[in-house]
């Protein structure tokens, strides 16, 4: 792609952002049915044409029209201003972009926004209940589970999803066998959190925070 093309793309994306804001501000109902029809019908004529999509993020409906290449992470950060989810490696290796989709933790950098039509998404911005922190957030503060803080939103979202997986009885590589019910031991937490890297190496405090939160959640 030439640099000129790139500039046009950037401008188009920016304009799209403004248009979407106006659209939302107008209070018009979100065209969810139209969006589905568009996506299940013939593909768009030009590769660069944008796709309408709607999803519920932190209990608020959002409608966007995005380039098909937009990842869920970029939709959150660049188009919705939800910059709590972080871009670390952008390849699913560091976990800084972890969000909850329909209650499950995923790497938002390795997912196309268009694939999340209709999904319920929770980011770090949506975990607290008003001024009351989520128990995992409170435990990270109490146990000093971070240094620079860049990986922390991903760590916390991952821990929330992970504790739910333990509660659902999912085994892990650290489980003595795959049949028994797991418990949130240190070994289990370390194994299950291996998709989240902390380059400050705050791991001992992160594990302590998650152990505390496991008792509360």
């Amino acid at each position: 792609m030439t640099e000129t093309d790139y500039r046009i793309t950037r401008r188009a994306v920016l304009e799209g952002g403004v248009a979407t804001c106006l659209f939302l501000a107008s209070g018009l109902p979100v065209g969810a049915q139209d969006a589905v029809a568009t996506m299940t019908g013939e593909p768009a004529m030009t590769p660069m044409s944008r796709i309408p999509m709607t999803f519920r993020i932190n209990a608020t409906e959002h409608a966007l029209e995005l380039d098909p290449r937009t990842t869920l992470l970029d939709a959150l950060r660049n188009h919705l201003g939800l910059t709590g989810s972080k871009k670390g490696c952008d390849h699913g290796q560091c976990g800084a972009c972890t969000v909850l989709v329909n209650g499950r933790r995923i790497n938002s950098c390795l997912s196309l926004a268009a694939q999340h039509e209709g999904d319920e998404i929770t980011t770090i911005e949506g975990l607290a209940d008003g001024d009351r922190l989520h128990p995992v957030q409170a435990a990270f503060v109490a146990q000093d589970g971070f240094q620079c803080g860049y990986c922390t939103p991903g760590q916390i979202c991952s821990a929330v999803g992970m504790l739910e997986e333990i509660r659902a009885g999912w085994p892990s590589h650290a489980s003595a066998d795959v049949v028994s019910e797991p418990a949130p031991t240190e070994a289990e937490i370390r194994e299950r959190m291996s998709g989240n890297i902390c380059r400050c190496a705050a791991y001992p405090n992160i594990v302590a925070a998650i152990r505390d939160a496991a008792e509360e959640v």
């Binding site: 699913g92 976990g95 972890t98 499950r104 933790r105 995923i106 790497n107 390795l110 997912s111 991952s158 999803g161 992970m162 997986e165 085994p171 892990s172 590589h173 489980s175 795959v178 299950r192 959190m193 291996s194 998709g195 989240n196």
Partner: peptide, 15 residues
């Protein structure tokens, strides 16, 4: 189960 759990991360396995 063992093989699946030995692969990738929790986030990747969910997708």
């Amino acid at each position: 189960s063992q093989a699946l759990l030995a692969g990738a991360s929790g986030q990747i396995r969910n997708k």
